[in-house]
Simulated scan of single mutants.
Amino acid sequence: MQNSITVDQQADVIMRDNLVELLKGGFAPVVILLEEFHFDKAGVDLDGLPFSAWSLLEHMKHRQKVLLQFMKDPEDNPEVWPEAYWPDNPVPENEEIWNNSIAEFQKDLEEMINLVKDPDTELYKVYSNGKTLAWAAMTTFHHNAYTIGQVKAIGRQLGVW
């Protein structure tokens, strides 16, 4: 008996692979860019911008965590777009806290990627808030891409890249 894959199964595999690629950052790998950013410039506020790279990292990490919690337990975490989180202090206390924040962001991102890869994860089921897990993954990569672009622009102005 031949083991064949249906068109729907093939489309599901392709969609999951695409989501994983986008979550990682595609041509702008989010975690690598964060790790390359110089700690000593992470708290610099440029004229005209209301945030530093540290503020953006914490904002991005918080939003990603909210969406991950929804993906892990959608019925008990229906609030997927709460008020935006911004840290009170735009400067990380020290390099260890900066690095730990990047590591926590990466850990949560990897957990989300593993959920997307898992064929038992129901990406397309609509939950009580009207959202799907695929929506949460796409929202995460969209928000991360937008925010890492801001980090990249700050880094360019500060001579990081």
Score class of each variant (00 low, 15 high):
Pro78Phe: 06
Pro50Trp: 00
Pro82Asn: 10
Trp86Arg: 10
Pro78Val: 14
Asp76Ala: 14
Pro50Gln: 05
Ile102Tyr: 12
Glu104Trp: 05
Glu95Ala: 10
Leu67Gln: 04
Leu46Ala: 06
Lys72Asn: 08
Phe39Ile: 04
Asp40His: 13
Trp98Phe: 07
Ser52Leu: 00
Ser52Gly: 01
Val91Met: 09
Glu79Asp: 15
Asp73Glu: 15
Phe51Cys: 11
Leu68Ile: 06
Pro74Ile: 01
Glu110Met: 09
Asn77Tyr: 09
Leu49Val: 10
Gly43Ser: 02
Arg63Ile: 15
Lys61Pro: 02
Asn89His: 06
Ile102Trp: 07
Leu57Tyr: 00
Glu93Ile: 06
Leu49Ile: 12
Glu93Tyr: 05
Leu68Asp: 04
Pro90Gln: 00
Glu96Met: 13
Lys61Gln: 12
Val66Thr: 12
His62Met: 07
Glu96Pro: 01
Leu49Lys: 13
Phe39Gln: 05
Ala84Asp: 15
Asp88Met: 04
Lys61Glu: 11
Asp40Arg: 11
Phe51Ile: 09
His59Trp: 03
Met112Asn: 03
Glu93Phe: 02
Asp88Ala: 10
Leu49Gly: 01
Ser55Trp: 04
Asp88Gly: 03
Glu75Met: 07
Phe39Tyr: 14
Ile97Ala: 08
Ser55Ile: 02
Asn100Arg: 13
Trp98Cys: 02
Gln64Leu: 13
Phe105His: 07
Glu75Trp: 11
Trp86Thr: 11
Trp54Asn: 08
Lys65Phe: 10
Glu111Ala: 14
Glu95His: 06
Asn77His: 13
Glu111Pro: 01
Glu96Ala: 14
Asp47Trp: 07
Glu83Tyr: 11
Glu111Met: 10
Leu46Asn: 04
Ala42Tyr: 05
Val91His: 12
Phe70Asn: 08
Gln64Trp: 01
Val44Thr: 12
Val80Ala: 10
His59Val: 02
Asn89Trp: 05
Met60Glu: 00
Leu56Lys: 01
Lys72Tyr: 01
Lys72Phe: 03
Glu75Asp: 14
Lys107Phe: 08
Lys65Glu: 12
Pro78Gly: 05
Asn94Asp: 15
Trp81Ala: 13
Asn89Ile: 06
Pro82His: 09
Pro78Cys: 10
Pro82Trp: 08
Asp47Met: 07
Val44Ile: 13
Pro90Trp: 00
Lys41Asp: 07
Ala103Glu: 12
Asp88Thr: 07
Asp73Ala: 15
Trp81Leu: 11
Met71Arg: 03
Leu67Pro: 01
Met112Arg: 00
Asp45Ile: 14
Phe39Cys: 02
Asn94Glu: 11
Glu58Gln: 15
Glu111Thr: 08
Glu75His: 12
Gln106Trp: 02
Ser101His: 11
Gln69Pro: 01
Asp73Gly: 14
Asn77Ala: 04
Tyr85His: 13
Phe105Leu: 08
Asn77Glu: 05
Gly43Lys: 04
Ala84Met: 12
